[in-house]
């Protein structure tokens, strides 16, 4: 039984984010949660609005970067922060729903603003137990 979850790993100037899951889609959802947790406490974010996201890339690792950058774009242009995701991946295409709410500085106390997902420490891989891992460094 592979695990589901996320964590941060250290980078000298920025933040490494990593998601795990039994499928590629779940690993991508968890990686997105890890990115949100680099900004604020995800427990304190409510699912009040839903945003639809679609992107594509030729390889799974490039798709992870596209996915995270699409979220960064939605956050920046909508002034939102997200806490829950449902990702579907078919071949090179990703479609997703992201739930969250408007940024409330008093309540969320955002610690950082993510500028972009990078190719640094970028890896999407499958372990012997079948579980997926998706990670990269995000620039803050």
């Amino acid at each position: 039984m592979s695990m589901t979850g996320w964590e941060h790993f250290p980078h000298e100037a920025d933040v490494g984010i990593r998601g795990y899951g039994p499928s590629l889609s779940v690993a991508f959802e968890q990686a997105a949660l890890a990115m949100m947790a680099a900004i604020a406490d995800v427990e304190g974010i409510e699912s009040r609005q839903r945003v639809e996201i679609a992107c594509e890339a030729p390889e799974p690792d490039l798709l992870l970067v596209e996915w995270l950058n699409a979220l960064i774009y939605e956050m920046a242009t909508r002034d939102m922060i997200f806490c829950r995701f449902a990702v579907t991946i078919e071949g090179t295409a990703l479609s997703a729903q992201a739930w969250g709410e408007d940024v409330d500085v008093e309540r969320h106390r955002p610690a950082a603003e993510v500028k972009g997902a990078t190719y640094t420490a970028l890896e999407v891989s499958r372990a012997a137990d079948g579980g997926w891992m998706a990670q990269c460094v995000v620039d803050v």
């Binding site: 960064i72 500028k115 972009g116 990078t118 190719y119």
Partner: peptide, 16 residues
């Protein structure tokens, strides 16, 4: 700000 970040993100992808 956001403009520079987005330019960086898009050209990094296209140049790679």
């Amino acid at each position: 700000r956001g403009l520079g970040h987005q330019i960086g993100t898009e050209f990094l992808r296209d140049m790679a």
